[in-house]
Design a protein around this nucleic acid. Sequence first.
DNA 1: TTGAAAGCGTTACCAA
DNA 2: TTGGTAACGCTTTCAA
Lengths: 337, 337
Amino acid sequence: MKLTMRKIAEMVGVSVTTVSLVLNDKNVRITKDKKRQIKEVARKYNYVPNSSAVSLAKNQSNTIGVVVPNINNPFYSALIKAISDDLAEIGYYALTINTDDNHKNESKQIAQLVNRGVDGILLVPTNDLYAQGQDVADDFLKHIQIPFVLVNADSELAINQVNLDSFEGGYLATQALVDNSHRHIAIVTGNKGYVNAENRLNGYKQALGDNGIPFDDGLVFRSDYDVNGGYDIIEKIEKNPKITAIFFCNDLMLYGAIKRTNEQKKNLFDLYSVVGYDDSYFNEVLNPTITSIRQDVAELGRRSVQILRRQLEGKKRPINEKLQVSLIKRQSIKSLS
Amino acid sequence: MKLTMRKIAEMVGVSVTTVSLVLNDKNVRITKDKKRQIKEVARKYNYVPNSSAVSLAKNQSNTIGVVVPNINNPFYSALIKAISDDLAEIGYYALTINTDDNHKNESKQIAQLVNRGVDGILLVPTNDLYAQGQDVADDFLKHIQIPFVLVNADSELAINQVNLDSFEGGYLATQALVDNSHRHIAIVTGNKGYVNAENRLNGYKQALGDNGIPFDDGLVFRSDYDVNGGYDIIEKIEKNPKITAIFFCNDLMLYGAIKRTNEQKKNLFDLYSVVGYDDSYFNEVLNPTITSIRQDVAELGRRSVQILRRQLEGKKRPINEKLQVSLIKRQSIKSLS
DNA sequence: TTGAAAGCGTTACCAA
DNA sequence: TTGGTAACGCTTTCAA
């Protein structure tokens, strides 16, 4: 049998109001003794409020929709973990939705979430959406009718958004290579339109420019942000003998490249100096260990939640935040000089 | 302004009951005309039922709680993905909850889920629970008051459960090593009481026995199912010079061992033949590639959902299912002969 | 310091 | 074929 406030009230011999007040720490002006008794009974019989009832009464669901392209990607799963934990701390459930990086899906799912009455949404948009152009993306975002925060992507709109500084990441990675006298540096970035891919590329360009190295379009390679993406692209890179270093904009791609060269009985690291992106734990397992850009996913989750909460509390002015990234130096860069 | 049933009722000039009946396609015996009008208004003003109210009234929610130790673990995240997809297909939301492998948490979260009115639970239990003994675990499970399926664990109770055949996994892995003339095979399994750890160990024992190799308790090493677990344990293994092969009951542990030996300027694979467990994609990135036990996570998710659904539909007789695993042969076993 | 009672939006039982 | 109304469990206002 489930314990309700009414039952507690009966057991202690007070009104439901009193129980509600006490259990929500609302009203301090309740007799110490009654208070104690109520809390005692609640604890003893393990009282848990019925959240449907709370939602109905307060007209909020205490649920946040968390929309991500793919739970399976370690970057997203780490983000979800961070978000869920932070959300739980402030009394919200995370209702996580996979879009499979498909915008149609994304659009449909968000509509459902809204209908279901979630209080807000944390949206990590699909690459599929951004690949259709920033204007299409912005137009889509403009039509979301409930509080939401755009996570891990940019928009020109005056909406709440948090992103990691991909420009800086691209810059730091490239600079690390340049510092070791590399001048012919390939960059393997996401396919055209990928969220954040252009920023990393721009950081790369800027770093080259700042060091007086001319940008060569032929050194830009594009592929999917996954193992197969790297697996497929490495042979194209090998065709250009001038290249001495590669900046992989995603660790998974790097792993794919390793896999491919191993299969060819070659060692990627004999061929190239390398920098990765995301700082996966696997970077410490490989030999050599991988120098990589670390993104603070936990912080990204935390800020997303904070900003959404702020919006939920009625703050109007939108926040646009860019989180710092850092270079983790390991062994995968050899000096050319 | 949100549209409610009452408002529709007023607009059309009928009772709330009628509206509810029509909108839920409950009662065909409503005047065609009224029916049409109600549906018309609902569609026109985009009526969406308040799900808190529905949940409260029906005491159910079209939501299934999915309780896992840790989203971040690739095995669990793959499972969640599979489950969410399957659940979505039959019209349910997955409300995923992290227990951080802490039983107190698990217990609290389940209680919350129940009070929140989820219709059922897919429970991947914590190791923390099972470490307290099968009887404690069973006792806990016995007290879950809503439909649920025990996933990826065993229970003696007559409850719905699906698990992967860990005994078979342990057997296959060990046999593969024995087939290559290894006789001093270390096993690195989970800490005492870990879910499925004993089964893998028993499979190992059985395989040894079937090949006339005496079981040596000194070859059993225990640690956490993660990278650090393997990192910490490898030095202990190195103290026994007889050991020529290691069966890691979890790929992450294997990675930790690689990391540690690399740091010592040694190569794990020069020292030992190795079999892993879970068949992570990294296994193909490493050199040599790793022979490992593959578990069909997608199938595990699918069956979990099917069995829960069956229970939700009122079927009483519990199902206890064991899913097959297989050995994926790669390069990490060298023949001793 | 406390309690009664009116919601919150639905569902479902019982009458009409 | 319909409608009144009591739940569902909680919050909140107003009175006492």
